[in-house]
């Protein structure tokens, strides 16, 4: 993501640092910001999140990586203004994992890369947000960030963000950073 022209757009560039292509520029200047790009495994598409400046929430889109098509929404606009964020592809390119607060706090969900109903993947308490999922290239697990609050007198206090791991075969979730012995 760059704001080189004043608008937050998704760009593709070579690792030599040139040939930047604006993938998401359109005529809606000043009305939205695009961020969190994620390449499909075959390099043909980029998923990203679009946040409206004047509307609540965020939606997920997919665009061709050569900029030859307009972005395609992965889901309909949320009636509640929920945010769908941080898309990340499965290694076979068929599924996208993302984080959404449609239940009131952020949980992880799966959705087909060609659009469809999302399936909830994590079910945690309201003082926890599960964010920034990253699907392992071997397809076996998803790393993510868990934002946790310690409740003191009923008031959420001392936020901590740690890296967690979800093993897809067993459903087991465990923390890998900020462990007690660190």
């Amino acid at each position: 993501m760059s704001k080189v022209d004043g608008e937050a757009d998704i760009y593709a560039m070579t690792t030599m640092g040139f040939a930047m292509i604006n993938l998401t520029h359109d005529k809606t200047v000043g009305l939205r910001a695009d961020s969190e790009p994620a390449w499909s495994p075959d390099g043909q598409f980029v998923a990203f999140q679009r946040t409206g400046i004047k509307t609540p929430g965020a939606r997920l889109f997919v665009v061709r990586s050569d900029g030859s098509s307009d972005p395609r929404a992965l889901s309909a606009p949320s009636a509640t203004g929920a945010s769908e964020t941080h898309p990340n592809w499965s290694p076979d390119g068929r599924t996208i994992v993302f984080s959404s607060n449609r239940t009131g706090h952020f949980e992880l969900y799966l959705v087909s890369a060609t659009r469809g109903l999302a399936k909830q993947l994590t079910f945690t308490s309201s003082v926890v947000d599960n964010l920034e999922p990253a699907w392992s290239p071997d397809g076996q697990s998803i790393a993510f960030v868990r934002h946790e609050w310690t409740m003191l007198g009923g008031i959420p206090s001392f936020p901590t963000e740690s890296i967690y791991m979800l093993w897809l075969k067993t459903g087991q979730i465990y923390r890998i950073t900020n462990r007690e012995w660190e």
């Binding site: 920034e132 392992s136 290239p137 076996q140 790393a143 890296i163």
Partner: peptide, 17 residues
């Protein structure tokens, strides 16, 4: 403390964050 933005190495052996 905040640990965030996990990213896998291509061989799934390491996470950067």
């Amino acid at each position: 403390m905040s640990d965030c933005q996990p990213a896998w190495s291509g061989d799934s052996l390491l996470l950067a964050f």
